[in-house]
């Protein structure tokens, strides 16, 4: 059974992702901050980590970089705040979609999903990055 870590400061989002993944038979652990997520990956090795990018204190990009150091084989799916965060007067989706995708990919994420995403897209992404 594949182990998946879901990190998002929005507990409702993390819980929903957990529900979907558990329903499909994955073992899911959630964390509501990047530092808790870091603590979790130090305890246990996950096959896939699904993490939000913009979070208070330690952000998702740092978590991704740390994860790359500790477990280089763990696959990472970043979920961005949904086309929307930052000075939206200054081209909002440039930040969330292009810039965040670029930043997340640069930090080491395999894939980036934009909130709100469909269940099928989430499952497809997770399955794509599992060994078998």
């Amino acid at each position: 059974m594949a182990a998946i870590l879901v990190v998002d400061d929005e507990v409702d989002v993390a819980d929903a992702i957990q529900a979907v993944l558990e329903h499909s038979g994955f073992a899911v652990v959630t964390a509501d901050s990047a530092s808790r997520g870091l603590a979790a990956i130090e305890r246990q090795q996950f096959d896939v980590v699904v993490t939000d990018i913009i979070m208070p204190k330690v952000n998702g990009l740092e978590l991704i970089r740390k994860l790359r150091e500790i477990h280089p084989r763990t696959r990472i799916i970043a979920i961005s705040g949904g086309g929307s965060f930052g000075p939206l007067s200054l081209k909002p989706d440039a930040i969330s979609t292009h810039a965040f995708i670029a930043a997340a990919r640069e930090a080491g994420a395999e894939e980036v999903l934009t909130k709100p995403f469909d269940m099928d897209d989430l499952l497809a992404a997770v399955r794509r990055h599992l060994p078998n």
Binding site: E10, D12, V13, D15, A16, I17, A19, V20, H23, G81, G82, G83, S84, F85, G86, P87, L88, S89, L90, P92, K115, P116, F117, D118, M119, D120, L122
Partner: peptide, 30 residues
């Protein structure tokens, strides 16, 4: 910038809210 930021911030929150709505309803629909 303030208007944009406000809209962006609200949108961010709404996207966060929509994510569980979409996922749970699709899960239930399944």
């Amino acid at each position: 910038a303030t208007i944009g930021t406000l809209a962006g911030g609200v949108a961010h929150e709404f996207n966060n809210i929509l994510t569980p709505i979409l996922l749970y309803s699709q899960l239930a629909l399944n």
